[in-house]
């Protein structure tokens, strides 16, 4: 870390440095050591059987990452899962926020109720999903069955399982998008809206020409926050389908977990993990760029 620059100001900032150093030292210890370990692991054959053993294997793991059809299909499933969850969350979340914002009273209690899912542990979201969709006594399964919409085992069929895990994620995280967008809506210029109304603008026109442009930055924040979490968490799928049926919901983190802790191929898992890290670093880059842009605006 290039903290002490030797500039005269560095001495006078001794207090600030002292305040920062314990946290930064600890953070460096618990993130940089694993970071260099995962890189080293990705060039090794790491065996757990009968004690830990490293065997240098060059680029073997990396060759597999880019040629393994299972990995490719998992990235593809991740992409579908990612686009569907984040897309639905953005659309429904924005809608939710617009609705709550347009309320003249009761918005506080309604948004509080709508926010509850995002405090729920993903493992409990998965539990709830399984409970509601249980073929023999789940409420949603029963409703779908009674209305004749679907009468199979929802989590046991290829297409419906994917839809179900997507909707569970949407259920949990749409409120977060709504919360963020709602905060942004307060920055929509009221006077401009009123002027547009006087001129006879319809709701759709106001939405497209005034509201959405003035919250575009906020929407981007919501998108980035969701994008990073979409690849961070995997507990919902872990607990509901664990990637099945027939690998149809095996998003990349689930695949990685399988490689690491079912097949104990930790070196290969490390290489897969690094490709995921690259993705999250790209999101983080976009996020910090956006923050800087906001600072310039304000």
């Amino acid at each position: 870390m290039a903290l002490s620059t030797g500039k005269p100001s560095a001495r006078r900032q001794g207090f600030e440095l002292a305040m920062m150093s314990p946290a930064l030292f600890l953070l460096a210890l618990i993130t940089l050591v694993p970071f260099f370990s995962i890189i080293w692991m990705s060039f090794n054959d790491v065996s757990l059987m009968g004690g830990l053993a490293f065997e240098f294997s060059g680029l073997d793991n990396w060759k597999r990452v880019f040629t393994d059809p299972d990995i490719r299909s998992s990235w593809l499933i991740s992409l579908v899962y990612f686009l569907a969850t984040v897309g639905l969350e953005m659309v429904i979340g924005t809608m939710m926020a617009l609705l709550v914002y347009s309320l003249t009273r009761g918005s506080n209690i309604i948004i509080s109720l709508l926010l509850i899912p995002m405090f729920i542990a993903p493992v409990i979201v998965g539990l709830l999903g399984r409970f509601m969709l249980d073929p023999s006594h789940g409420l949603y399964a029963w409703m779908l069955n009674e209305t004749g919409l679907f009468d199979g085992n929802i989590l046991g069929n290829v297409g419906s399982a994917m839809v179900a895990v997507i909707l569970m994620d949407v259920w949990e995280w749409t409120p977060l998008v709504a919360l963020i967008v709602l905060a942004g809506l307060t920055s929509v210029p009221e006077d401009v809206l009123e002027a547009a109304e006087m001129d006879g603008a319809k709701y759709a026109q106001k939405l497209i020409y005034i509201i959405l442009p003035s919250i575009s930055n906020i929407l981007l924040v919501a998108l980035l926050i969701r994008a990073m979490d979409a690849i961070r968490f995997f507990a919902i799928i872990f607990i509901t389908t664990n990637g099945g049926p027939a690998d149809s919901t095996k998003i990349i983190p689930i695949r990685l977990y399988d490689i690491a802790f079912r097949f104990f191929d930790l070196g290969y898992a490390a290489a897969v993990g690094i490709t995921m890290l690259v993705f999250s670093i790209m999101v983080a880059t976009a996020f910090t760029k956006l923050l800087k842009r906001q600072e310039k605006v304000s």
């Binding site: 050591v33 970071f35 995997f234 983190p253 990685l256 490390a270 897969v272 993990g273 999250s280 983080a284």
Partner: peptide, 10 residues
């Protein structure tokens, strides 16, 4: 922002 699955391995 690091993905949890990737952090778990090392």
């Amino acid at each position: 922002m690091a993905p949890i699955a990737a952090v778990i391995v090392p």
